[in-house]
């Protein structure tokens, strides 16, 4: 199976709750070629249909589009929680 590597950054999420990501919340994970953003989230233990916000290479990807968002080698994913400010 061909595997690609994508960067993964957790923003304001405790890294201890996530698999395969460093304590600083930044890491690189392998994903099968043709894999989606949802696949990558599954790999680290994040449930894609939970209301996380996601960016790929700085562009937002809505929850309903995560299954269809195909990743490329070197893509940078950022995930952050649904905080409402105050």
């Amino acid at each position: 199976m061909i595997v690609i590597n994508v960067g993964f950054q957790l923003v304001s999420i405790d890294p201890s709750e996530v698999k395969g990501i460093g304590r600083d919340g930044i890491g690189e994970i392998p994903v099968k070629d043709g894999g989606s953003l949802a696949d990558a989230m599954h790999m680290v233990g994040l449930v894609p249909d939970k209301p996380f916000m996601t960016l790929v290479n700085g562009d937002p990807v809505a929850p309903e589009n995560r299954d269809d968002k195909v990743l490329n080698d070197g893509d940078q994913i950022a995930v952050f929680p649904p905080i409402e400010g105050g």
């Binding site: 950054q9 923003v11 304001s12 405790d14 916000m53 960016l55 700085g58 937002p60 950022a78 952050f80 929680p81 649904p82 905080i83 400010g85 105050g86």
Partner: peptide, 22 residues
């Protein structure tokens, strides 16, 4: 989860979110 997050890292955590997002 929102309660835990607001308790532990507060609204301050939003700064990384908005900075990442632009």
């Amino acid at each position: 989860e929102p309660r835990k997050r607001l308790s532990s890292i507060g609204t301050h955590a939003m700064l990384d979110v908005t900075n990442s997002y632009g």
